[in-house]
C-alpha cells in the first residue's frame, strides 16, 4: 500500500509553467555519474571534480585555458568549405554545413590562433568535435597548411590539438589528400627546425591520427582519450571478438610507445610553457 493516493492521472502542469533549471547550471558526469555544478566543473579545467573525467571542450575553451591572459588572435578564420562534389546522402552536405555553422557559431572544424604561453609565442590549431564530428576536410587541411607557413615565416612553434572522427566523407578524396598535404607541409617545417607539438584529445581517430596527429616532435594526449586508426566498432566487426579493456586509450598508446606522455588538462598550460622554454634555443639558433 502506498502512503499517497494519486487523485488525478497524468502530469497536469502545462509546459509553460514548468520550472526548469537554467541550461547548464548542473554538470552530470557521464563517466562516474556524479552531479556537480557546471561552475565547479569549469573551474576544474573542464574536468569532473569527482573523477577527473576530461569533458570534451571546443577550441575557444582551449584557447582561453592556454593563452596568457586569454589573449589571442584568430588566423585564417575566413576560410569556409565548398560543396565541391555536390554530395548528398540522407541530407545534403550544404545542409549539414549550414546546420553545423549555426549550431556551433564556427566556420569550420578547426580554429587557428596565435598568442603567447608563458610569454613565448605559439600558434595553436585546435579542432572542434561539435562541427561535423571534428572531421577533416579541405578547409581543415588548408588552415593547418597556412598555420605551418605562418610558423615557418615567424619561426614560431606549432601546437595542434586533435579531436576528430577522421576524414570528412562528404569531401571524399579531397579530404583524403589533406592527409598528404598536412604531412608534406609538416616535413617542410621539420626541415627548418621548428618544433611541432601534437596533443591528442578524446577522440582522435582515422585520417587525423594517420596524418598530423601522430607526427609531432612531441606527441601527447589527455588522459583516457580514445586514440586510434580504425574505430573500435570496425575492429570488433572485422576480428569478430571483444576488444581488450583499455584498448585504444591514451594509456594504451603510451604503453605501446606512440606517446611521449599523458598530460592532465590542469597541467597542460604549464607543460607546454616548459616545452616552449626548452625549445626556445632551437628557434633562435637558425633565425
Amino acid at each position: 500500500m502506498g502512503w499517497f493516493k494519486r487523485l488525478k492521472d497524468g502530469i497536469q502542469t502545462a509546459t509553460k509553467y514548468k520550472k526548469e533549471a537554467p541550461d547548464g547550471l548542473w554538470f552530470h558526469c557521464k563517466e562516474c555519474g556524479a552531479t556537480t555544478t557546471s561552475k565547479e566543473m569549469r573551474e576544474n579545467f573542464f574536468k569532473c571534480p569527482k573523477c577527473d573525467y576530461h569533458v570534451r571542450i571546443g577550441s575557444r575553451e582551449y584557447f582561453d585555458l592556454l593563452f596568457d591572459n586569454e589573449k589571442y588572435t584568430l588566423l585564417f578564420d575566413n576560410l569556409v568549405a565548398k560543396d565541391i562534389l555536390e554530395f548528398v546522402d540522407l541530407k545534403s552536405y550544404k545542409e549539414r554545413l549550414d546546420t553545423a555553422r549555426k549550431k556551433t557559431g564556427l566556420n569550420e572544424a578547426i580554429s587557428v590562433a596565435v598568442g603567447k604561453i608563458h610569454r613565448h609565442a605559439i600558434v595553436i590549431a585546435c579542432m572542434d568535435f561539435s562541427f561535423i564530428g571534428g572531421s577533416m576536410n579541405t578547409v581543415v587541411g588548408e588552415k593547418i597548411a597556412r598555420a605551418i607557413e605562418y610558423c615557418m615565416a615567424h619561426r614560431t612553434p606549432l601546437l595542434i590539438i586533435s579531436k576528430s572522427g577522421g576524414a570528412r566523407m562528404m569531401e571524399a578524396a579531397f579530404s583524403l589528400m589533406q592527409m598528404a598535404k598536412t604531412a608534406a607541409m609538416l616535413s617542410e617545417m621539420a626541415k627548418m627546425g621548428i618544433p611541432y607539438f601534437s596533443l591528442m584529445t578524446d577522440p582522435t581517430t582515422g585520417g587525423v591520427t594517420a596524418s598530423y596527429a601522430m607526427l609531432g616532435d612531441i606527441n601527447m594526449a589527455e588522459p583516457k582519450a580514445l586514440i586510434g586508426f580504425a574505430g573500435p566498432r570496425v575492429i570488433r566487426e572485422t576480428i569478430k571478438r571483444d576488444l581488450p579493456e583499455g584498448f585504444q586509450t591514451s594509456e594504451f598508446l603510451l604503453e605501446h610507445g606512440f606517446l611521449d606522455f599523458i598530460v592532465n588538462r590542469a597541467e597542460l598550460k604549464d607543460r607546454i610553457g616548459e616545452l616552449l622554454k626548452l625549445f626556445a634555443p632551437a628557434l633562435k639558433a637558425k633565425a
Partner: peptide
C-alpha cells in the same frame, strides 16, 4: 599537394 583542395575565402 600543398595546392590540393577547393574552398571559399570570405572577405577577410
Amino acid at each position: 599537394y600543398r595546392r590540393m583542395g577547393e574552398f571559399e575565402e570570405l572577405a577577410p
